[in-house]
Design a protein around this nucleic acid. Structure first.
Lengths: 244, 244
DNA sequence: GCGGGATGTTGACCCGAATCAAGGTCGCCG
DNA sequence: CGGCGACCTTGATTCGGGTCAACATCCCGC
């Protein structure tokens, strides 16, 4: 019934208790980065560690929003579905990203693991109580939300007004600069998601995504032997196309 | 140089001081709805009343984000521009809506008045200090942001996956239910914005918007003698089309 | 009341991306 | 190691919405 496995190995649970949030590998980048030692312990007391296999559901649009999450490792896709199956991917989340903020009682979108994922899970009620006591954390969440809104507006511009080539260039530049911000390499861009995911994110079909990759390659802007690794050959040209 | 006129008539300024935020006509619907008497006075001490003519700029993307605003009366459009002039309208704001939340030092989008507008203007720094002292207000802003994010995701689905007919139906249902929430009539839907605005909001051209209005009319879903007033003939059909 | 600009509608045609269809590549399991 | 299924690429054709163009309507100022 459960959609994820709480780490079942007692040794691991123990390990989680011994090296909790204080030693979290994404702490500084995540919302927890604003917390001091005493505060981080309080957070540690309410979180669970959760694993989800690639392709598995984390939650569905309409589910009771009982938890919020921080991504510790792996990549997650968020999406909305129409009754006839049309899908719009609204975002890809990476380690340190926050997931599940909902005003209403239910989630407004679905979340699935793209790769195997490790999540830090907060019961919503307990987190809300913690927010009362740590205004700095609430401020951090507000900053987060403002940032997500900015990204969402960029995405609306992309979906409403850009051509297929511009969309793909924007997507690649976006991934590249995010990787850089996380301290990873900006040049060979890793694409953990499938062509279908990319298409549903960019408002295109898989065929158009594939053809557009080929066009960018023929134009000398990128190179890719492996469909999931893209080498940037002409960053300036890509940025130009992306509209930056 | 200034893009707006602070009420110049001393009688009015006086009036504003005598009947300030406490008597604000949109107070309950706006973020100020969470404030008590003493708090609202503190807000009243930092706001200015501002008027903007229809078609005038409120701020441009890239401007220093010195103020945030509450809309008291009128309709505002938010949009992003590409270097070649392509425009994406990211939202229409109505009385009681909050405007200008920005994490960065500059606005991430432009705002213009669609109709003549009255704004309540907060210097950003002063509001931030107020937020420190009134956590309830910050919580309200967070709720606001979460809500805007939900709307933004719906809009991404619209822009990425819906047909022209579905987009227009979604738009009309959206306006209608917002009007209802503000206590206005849900049936004759007022469209204060131009076809160009609607097109740039829905990721279409004005011609397609116009043709699609005609199609909805021929399908018996709506009626409109005046292009800025739409009568709903078949709400169920529109909702179905909109995907609800 | 009349002329002109802004806004909206309609028609003819075109084009970029969708659809339909066929292979290609890779990895996994028997 | 061979076959099957998932995923990606490429080609041929179609189609929804864009572009270009003409015209209608309204409003505003003179």
């Amino acid at each position: 019934m459960s959609r994820f496995t709480i780490l079942p190995d007692p040794r691991r649970q123990n390990e989680a208790r011994l090296t909790p949030c204080a030693a979290c590998e994404v702490r500084d980048l995540a919302i927890c980065g604003v917390l001091n030692g005493a505060e981080i312990e309080r957070v540690g007391a309410i979180v669970s560690n959760v694993r989800v296999e690639g392709g598995e559901v984390i939650f569905f649009e309409g589910d009771d929003a009982e938890h919020v999450f921080n991504i510790v490792a792996g990549v997650v896709r968020l999406f909305k579905l129409m009754p006839d199956g049309r899908r719009q991917v609204t975002g890809f989340l990476y380690p340190a990203d926050f997931l599940g903020l909902a005003l209403s009682a239910t989630y407004a979108y679905s979340a699935e693991a793209v790769t195997p994922v490790r999540l830090c899970r907060f019961p919503r009620g307990k987190l809300e109580r913690l927010l009362e006591e740590i205004p700095r954390l609430e401020k951090r969440l507000l900053g987060n939300a403002a940032n997500e809104l900015m990204v969402a507006q960029d995405q609306m511009l992309l979906l409403g007004r850009k051509t297929a080539k511009e969309r793909l260039a924007s997507f690649l530049m976006h991934l590249s600069s995010r990787a850089e911000r996380r301290g990873e390499t900006a040049d060979p861009i890793a694409l953990p998601m499938s062509r279908t995911d990319i298409a549903d994110y960019l408002g295109l079909t898989i065929e158009t995504v594939s053809r557009t990759f080929t066009r960018l390659r023929k134009d000398g802007l990128i190179d890719h032997a492996d469909p999931h690794v893209v080498h940037v050959l002409d960053r300036g040209g890509l940025e130009e196309l992306a509209g930056l």
